[in-house]
Design a protein around this nucleic acid. Structure first.
Lengths: 125, 125
DNA sequence: CTGTATCCTTTAAGATACTG
DNA sequence: CAGTATCTTAAAGGATACAG
């Protein structure tokens, strides 16, 4: 059928691009990406880079990104074990958009916090 | 204290910018923004623009964005009632980043879907 | 038309403890 | 070191019906 344009449309309820867009906004995914920006990193390093994440949740996040082809998981047969995570070429293309969003969030956080206080003041007193 | 740089850091567990970044990725927020890109829009119009959203959830999303100062809600005292939603200046500054993310999602959806199929094939049979 | 109210299901996430 | 297992809680989202 139509595979040239409008093949994917986030405004369409069933479009897979929706799930992709949502995944970007989940709690830990963006932080994993930013932590991997500079290069490969192992599990415990990621855990430290990203404050407050439990091993279970970090594993879930990493597996999910691996499944989507956004990063690779490499196991080195050593003792003690070493596992490295690294962005794929595809994953790296997401860094730009992610940084833009991050910069927006950091740059406008103060205004938003003020707006919230103002709203709450008016609507609760 | 330090209000000049690194005032907000998404890598920091308790930074408010995290909650902002997360909100961008919730299910309906980006779609509301894209629907409001062309100008003010009323409730029922938004409901139709955005497939599959229930009134309850749409209201929640809109209220939350209003609270953050990203859009305004204007009630016109008519019968039948008319309510229009419109992006604020602050909200409009988020359109650019959002479009970049949307384009990435739509542009790479196919590759990701293939990666998923491949992963599932290997890890389940 | 623009919502609210209720109830329900699903999913994300966190705490904690344990294993190859 | 790099996870897994189990349990529990919190939050998001959806179905449906109804109200001003």
């Amino acid at each position: 059928m139509d595979t040239e344009q409008r093949a994917f449309d986030v405004m369409s309820p069933d479009c897979p691009s929706r799930s992709i867009m949502q995944r970007m906004g989940d709690k830990w995914t963006p932080l994993v990406f930013l932590a991997l920006e500079a290069g490969p990193r192992r599990f415990s390093a990621l855990r430290q880079d990203i404050g407050g994440v439990t091993p279970k949740v970090l594993t879930q996040t990493l597996r999910s990104l691996e499944r989507d082809g956004l990063l690779t998981r490499t196991i080195y047969p050593e003792v003690p074990p070493r596992v490295e995570y690294e962005l794929t070429e595809l994953g790296a293309t997401l860094l730009g958009p992610l940084e833009i969003v991050r910069d927006w969030a950091q740059g406008h956080a103060e205004k938003i916090i003020r707006a919230r206080l103002n709203y709450d003041e008016i609507n609760e007193g």
